[in-house]
Nucleic acid binder design. Structure first.
Length: 274
DNA sequence: CAGAATACCTGCGGGC
DNA sequence: TGCCCGCAGGTATTCT
């Protein structure tokens, strides 16, 4: 589910409800997520006040005076703001309880994670330390991508999804950005021109921004903090449309496996070049 | 060492 | 109806 726009949507949804709120209780129903929820979480966070809510890559960073909660939604995680009396459902693994609301983490596949870091050590946290650029930052541009490509012998879709290089782009937005930039997903990075990298970087930014405006993409189960879907799915031009006509040229969209993942593209708009 | 494959989970749709 | 298979938006870890 969640790529950068979905995590950003979640962040914007929860922040106003939890900022400056004191944590009155913490409930862990299932601590076997991708990594176990730290056993000391209650000791570290009880009665602390939320001072900040940030996003880095696909990680949500919920800060208190001393400790930051690092949350990753994995493939199927959602965070919702709920009234305290709302009954739990299957896969509701974790609650942060405030004065009159609670923040509830639900994650059927349990690929998500909830971890802690001391504020002063946050930047050194192993999960955050080696992350690449934020795609919406000024530093992320065609020149940067081109520069990264010179050291690599991979295909362009892998480069886009490599979070050591640029963060937040998953299978959906990689496919969409490559279509927008008219680049064949399995192109070796060394055959692409600087001009193509420029267009690709611009496409990434445009698509992510639009997706954030629409509240993210809901294919199956993404929900924002109010339990509502995002509306970018109906703007997807290639993802999930294999066998249907290209919205640009009417050629039949094809799919192939790149990096173990299904990848849809237009054979005419994104021609194979070698 | 870079790049590719694997593993971690549950749920769902399709085929039989 | 029900069982089995394959696949799903992520990414650290293990393999080659």
């Amino acid at each position: 589910m969640p790529e950068l726009p979905e995590v950003e949507t979640t962040k914007r949804g929860i922040a106003p409800h939890i900022m400056q709120q004191r944590i009155e209780n913490i409930i862990v129903r299932q601590n076997q997520l991708r990594w176990p929820i730290p056993t000391e979480i209650k000791k570290k966070l009880l009665n602390e006040t939320i001072t900040d809510v940030e996003r880095r890559a696909k990680y949500l960073l919920i800060k208190t005076t001393k400790t930051t909660i690092i949350i990753h939604l994995g493939m199927s995680g959602t965070l919702r703001i709920l009234e305290k009396q709302v009954k739990t459902k299957k896969h509701d693994h974790f609650d942060l309880v405030f004065a009159d609301k609670l923040l509830r983490f639900n994650d059927p596949r349990r690929f998500g994670s909830i971890l802690l870091a001391k504020n002063e050590e946050l930047n050194q946290h192993p999960l955050l330390l080696h992350l690449g650029l934020e795609p919406l930052s000024k530093e992320f541009n065609g020149q940067y991508l081109w520069h990264c490509a010179q050291k690599k012998r991979v295909v362009i879709k892998s480069l886009l999804m490599d979070h050591h290089i640029v963060v937040g782009i998953g299978n959906i937005y990689a496919a969409e950005a490559l279509f927008a930039a008219r680049i064949y997903p399995a192109s070796a990075v060394n055959v692409l021109t600087l001009q193509q990298f420029n267009l690709l970087a611009r496409s990434v930014k445009t698509i992510l921004k639009k997706a954030i405006e629409k509240g993210g993409t809901t294919l199956k189960d993404f929900m924002n903090s109010e339990g509502k879907p995002g509306y970018f799915a109906n703007q997807l031009k290639v993802y999930g449309r294999a066998g249907l006509p290209c919205l640009n040229c009417k050629a039949i969209l094809q799919s192939m496996i790149v990096n173990q993942r299904n990848t849809v593209f237009c054979p005419k708009c994104q021609p194979f070049i070698r």
